[in-house]
Nucleic acid binder design. Structure first.
Lengths: 245, 245
DNA sequence: ATTGGTTTAGTGGACTAGCCTCTAGGAGAG
DNA sequence: CTCTCCTAGAGGCTAGTCCACTAAACCAAT
């Protein structure tokens, strides 16, 4: 009985048994690492069993668990195919569902990015901060050369999103950003706008650097308001908003 | 090939493969028929296998499926014990499946609902306001009767979301809300929490009524902070590392 | 009588070896 | 070119076997 005694942490209820649970984790990890997409097939059970050093029975249990969770569909004679119903991705799928009207896109962007700026201020690593600074420099160079700074703008927002270290919010932003692109180009085409936008970025960056979440959120909100006033935010009670599936 | 049609009933969608799925159904049926309650144990695997005429492996797969769905907890050396069935089955299932990402779900919820509260204050119609008030009254009644007010809580947040009149944000919330349900139940189980939550709702409602977007956003943020801090801290006393900051 | 260790029956955990069924795709007949 | 048939390879399920864990009964020392 080499039980407990470690004394490092206060009495953890031992490790955890349940082989299939560990296999589920490894399989999910493998799916992400290998970049498998919906429709792709997992390796055959026999191969998984030999590679992971377990029996086919245990692999089978893990596949049952994944199937119950709606991550894969196991088809007799064909294999285990990925389907895209993981909860996080269902959220994202709703973004993809319909072509959205610009005002709604801007609202969603505000909701997500303001929160991400706050989180970024609280969680950013030095690497995150370096990426943000690099994006600022890149945008400044673009403007110096007479450009409008779209590339730097996109990099900046991507860097802030990454610094927020929230996988779900980041995934949602990743789906939203293509829709944002059109408003970005339109906004930066206005005279004097690139410089204003860059100044806004700098304020956000400084708030993130100082770790002040509220200030970062405020700065991001002000920036987004400035950027999106090209499209007049107007809402008409009589016009039904596109509802979901 | 004994795949004949029989022509007895019009086109049944083939038979149903997947033995473990049928076993799950039979087991659930047995649980209900036998009137088993939380804490009771299922018959031993060997007995189930012989009674149902299948192998222990198949029984094992069925038990894995039930465990993933949060209906039973299979304990080594002890047996398969029922845990809280009822409508919360699904909730527990998804909570177990995504417990690692619960903090991220809470972050996403904050991002969306704070923005929605702000929009609701700006756009709410009288009908929206009536729905919000009705949700408040419903929750108050639930609490008066000794309940925890989950129903009213859900109605309230749904009403605020609707009052935001942003289709995209509403769709995102619709996908997120099943995941939120988990933390809702956890939170409202805290002593005194339902009343605190209701008070928070009233503050949000008043801000929306007065059309003050900033106040609504602030009130919603404070409310969500209150509600979710419990959800993260108090997950499963048996698993100390579950809080995963 | 209480405490603490030991034994034991029963249960789930996992593996091996094997055979069956299904699917997809290629070979061959027409 | 089209269709049929065959087959390789995938999952489905089983039987048999052994190991690990839990709880309760049992027993001994205090």
């Amino acid at each position: 009985m080499s039980r407990e005694r470690r004394a490092s942490k206060p009495l953890r209820p031992i490790a955890r048994p349940r082989l299939y649970e560990q296999l589920v984790e490894q399989l999910v990890e493998h799916i992400e690492d290998a970049g498998l997409s919906p429709g792709d097939r997992l390796p055959p059970e026999r191969e998984l069993a030999s590679q992971l050093g377990v029996s086919r029975v245990s692999i089978g249990q893990a596949l049952v668990a994944l199937e119950v969770q709606g991550i894969i569909d196991v088809r007799h004679g064909e294999g285990a195919v990925l389907l895209e119903t993981r909860p996080e991705q269902q959220v994202i799928a709703s973004l993809r569902a319909h072509q959205r009207r610009l005002p709604e896109i801007i609202e969603a962007r505000e909701a997500l990015e303001v929160k991400l700026a706050e989180l970024a201020a609280q969680r950013r690593t030095d690497e995150d901060m370096a990426a943000i600074d690099e994006a600022l420099a890149f945008m400044a160079a673009e403007i110096d050369e007479g450009g409008r700074g779209e590339g730097g703008d996109e990099r900046f927002h991507a860097a802030v999103t990454a610094a927020g270290h929230s996988g779900l919010l980041a995934d949602m932003m990743k789906e939203l950003s293509p829709l944002i692109l059109e408003s970005r180009i339109e906004s930066l085409a206005q005279p004097g706008r690139p410089k204003d936008s860059l100044a806004g970025h700098r304020r956000i960056a400084e708030a993130i650097r100082s770790g002040d979440g509220d200030a970062a959120a405020t700065a991001m909100l002000a920036h987004l308001r400035l950027v999106s006033d090209v499209a007049v935010l107007r809402w008409d009670p009589d016009e039904p908003e596109a509802s979901a599936t």
